[in-house]
C-alpha cells in the first residue's frame, strides 16, 4: 500500500474528526465536492454536519472560525490557495494571532494553506507565504515536506491551542508517497530533521525544496561533495539548535526556499546563524530564493524564476570554491 501527501492530509483530518467532537472543517466546496484538490473527499459523508461549505470570502471564513474557536471548537479552515489568504489577513494577524495574548482565551484554529507553484499556475495560485505569517507573534507556521510529516504535523496543529498556519505544498500532493503513516507522537512541532547527513556544507530548506536539495545532493556526491540537508519542518518555532549543530559540523551554509528573498525564512535562518554561530562559519552564509518578481505564468519563465536542482548544485560549488 502506498499513500500520497494529499491522502495523508485527508487521513489526518479524518482521524481528528473521529477522535475529537470539537473538530470541524470549513472551506470553499469542502463538503460534497471534497475540496478543490480533493483533500476532504468523502469526509462530509463520513462525518455529516462536520464538513461545511463556506462562502467565497476568506475574511468571513477566518472570522467565523475564530469565533467558533474561542467558544470551544477546534476548526480546520481550508484556504483554497494560500494566495487567497491575504483577504483574511486582518482576521489572522489581528484576531487569531493576538487573541490569547489579549484575552487569555486560546484561539485553536488550523488554517490549511495549499502553497507553492506548478507550471502555469501564475502569480495568484503559487505563493508560499510562510514567512509572512511567521513574522507575527502568536502564530505557529508548519511546512511539511514528507507524507509522514504532513500527517504528524497536521494532527499536532489541530491539537495545539495556538492558531496554526499549515502550509501544505500543492506540488507534493500526488508526487510524494510513503509506504505507511506513522504513529503520531505529538513531538514533531518545532523540530527540524537531518534529511541527509554530510560534512561539506549545510543546506537548510523546508517543504518542496527539500526534495530539490536531496536530488542536488546526489548530483554533488558524484563529484565527491557531501552536503547535509536540514528539513526545518516547522518554520515557527524554528529549530535553531539543529541548524547550528549542522553548521558546527560543516562550517558552511546555504538556505534554499521557494519564497521570495525579502524577509524570508532563509534570511531569518542566516540572521540566527550569523548572530549565534558566527565562529562556526568558514565562509559567508548564502541564500537561494525565487526571484523577487511576481510568479510568472509561462512554464519556462516559471522554472527560471525559482530555485532548481541545477541552481542549488551551482551555488554549492561556488561556496566550496571560496
Amino acid at each position: 500500500m502506498s499513500i500520497t501527501y494529499l491522502e495523508a492530509i485527508r487521513e489526518a483530518q479524518a482521524k481528528a474528526l473521529r477522535d475529537d467532537p470539537r473538530v470541524y472543517i470549513y472551506g470553499q466546496d469542502v463538503a460534497d465536492f471534497g475540496g478543490a484538490f480533493k483533500a476532504t473527499k468523502n469526509l462530509a459523508k463520513e462525518f455529516p454536519g462536520r464538513v461545511l461549505d463556506s462562502p467565497i470570502s476568506e475574511d468571513a471564513m477566518v472570522g467565523s472560525v475564530v469565533g467558533a474557536a474561542i467558544e470551544g471548537m477546534r476548526p480546520i479552515v481550508e484556504m483554497q490557495f494560500s494566495d487567497f489568504s491575504s483577504n483574511a489577513f486582518n482576521q489572522i494577524i489581528n484576531q487569531a494571532a493576538a487573541f490569547h495574548w489579549r484575552t487569555n482565551i486560546p484561539c485553536p484554529i488550523t488554517i490549511r494553506m495549499p502553497s507553492g507553484g506548478n507550471p502555469g499556475s501564475g502569480p495568484f495560485h503559487s505563493q508560499t507565504l510562510e514567512s509572512v505569517y511567521a513574522h507575527f507573534p502568536g502564530l505557529i507556521v508548519m511546512t511539511p515536506a514528507t507524507v509522514e510529516d504532513a500527517y504528524d504535523l497536521l494532527l499536532e496543529a489541530i491539537a495545539i491551542d495556538d492558531p496554526v498556519i499549515f502550509c501544505e505544498h500543492k506540488f507534493l500532493y500526488n508526487r510524494v508517497k510513503a509506504e505507511k503513516l506513522p504513529e503520531p507522537n505529538g513531538q514533531t512541532t518545532g523540530k527540524a530533521r537531518i534529511a541527509r547527513p554530510g560534512r561539506d556544507l549545510t543546506v537548510v530548506s523546508y517543504s518542496a525544496t527539500v526534495h530539490d536539495a536531496l536530488v542536488a545532493a546526489q548530483e554533488l556526491s558524484r563529484f565527491g561533495i557531501q552536503i547535509e540537508v536540514v528539513d526545518l519542518r516547522t518554520v515557527k518555532p524554528l529549530d535553531t539548535e539543529t541548524v547550528l549543530a549542522s553548521v558546527a559540523n560543516t562550517g558552511r551554509l546555504l538556505c534554499v526556499g521557494e519564497s521570495w528573498p525579502w524577509g524570508g525564512v532563509n534570511a531569518e535562518v542566516i540572521a540566527r546563524v550569523a548572530t549565534k554561530g558566527f565562529h562556526l562559519l568558514d565562509s559567508a552564509p548564502q541564500r537561494l530564493n525565487s526571484r523577487d518578481v511576481p510568479i510568472p505564468y509561462h512554464p519556462d519563465l516559471w522554472r527560471a524564476s525559482r530555485p532548481s536542482v541545477a541552481m542549488i548544485v551551482e551555488r554549492v560549488r561556488q561556496i566550496l570554491q571560496w
Binding site: P119, R175, A208, D212, V215, E219, F223, I225, S308, V309
Partner: peptide, 24 residues
C-alpha cells in the same frame, strides 16, 4: 530536457554536460 520538476516520474534533473568540480 525541459521536463517537469525534480519530483516528476523518473530521472533527476541533471544537466546534459555536467562539468566536473574544479578546486580553486
Amino acid at each position: 530536457a525541459a521536463g517537469a520538476g525534480p519530483i516528476a516520474e523518473g530521472a533527476a534533473q541533471i544537466e546534459p554536460e555536467a562539468v566536473p568540480f574544479q578546486p580553486s
